[in-house]
Computed example of a mutant assay.
Amino acid sequence: MTTQRPPEQPTGQSGRLTPEAWIQAGFRALARKGPSALKAEALARDIGTTKGSFYWHFADIADFKMQMLRHWEERAFDDIVGELNALPDPRQRLRHLCALAVSFRDPAYGGAAGEPALRAWGREDGNVSEAVLRMDARRLAYLEALCRDCGLMQPDAAAILYAATLGYESLVDAAPEAAVRGMMTLLNALGLPRT
């Protein structure tokens, strides 16, 4: 029988775990076991350290959860939009965004189950629900502007694309390549001009 070692954890110059290491552990625990797994002692055990390290970075579990949500909002929107804005053609940006949305599954953050688990958590926690609603509004606004820039005339194109990415996300076992092909087929059906 083999035991699974925890993934490499981000550490600072002092060799201590960083807040990001704890946040990643939180997303992995959330994806595996749900929000009840977001406890300092359980997370410390998962990453092979003491809970004292947790309290070095976070005031308490509530602070940790808020930091998780803040990190998700930055990473799952700001970082992606920054990457997309480097592409000169809006059609390229839209194709890349759709491919990325259904294929990027970082195991450090719970893999394919990460965001669906976060959305499920939002159904039982008001703070998480607010963060999810905020993220949905930001993503939809960005998609609507991008669709306009691409010349997509379908008035609901952004909502259709966003719903499709959420649907593919919930299919945890879906092959990323098949999901990307499906999104490209949808973009073509919506009339996205070729680049």
Rank of each mutant, 00 (worst) to 15 (best):
W121N: 00
D136Y: 09
A29C: 06
L171D: 11
T18M: 13
M68C: 13
L118V: 03
L30H: 05
L140C: 08
P116D: 05
L161Q: 04
V172K: 05
Q13F: 15
A21Q: 02
R93G: 07
D60A: 09
A25R: 07
A117Y: 05
S170T: 11
T18P: 02
T49N: 11
R70S: 14
M135T: 10
L97F: 15
P116C: 10
Q154P: 00
A37I: 10
M153S: 13
R93C: 09
A44K: 04
E124C: 12
A112L: 10
I80F: 09
P7C: 06
I47K: 04
P176I: 08
G122M: 04
N85K: 07
R70C: 07
D78R: 10
A174P: 00
E20Y: 06
T11V: 15
R45P: 00
S36M: 12
N85V: 06
T11S: 11
T3K: 05
G34N: 06
D78F: 11
E83I: 10
A112P: 01
L186F: 06
Q154K: 10
M135I: 03
E74G: 12
V180W: 00
G82L: 05
A108Q: 12
K65R: 14
A120Q: 10
T49S: 14
L30V: 05
A137P: 02
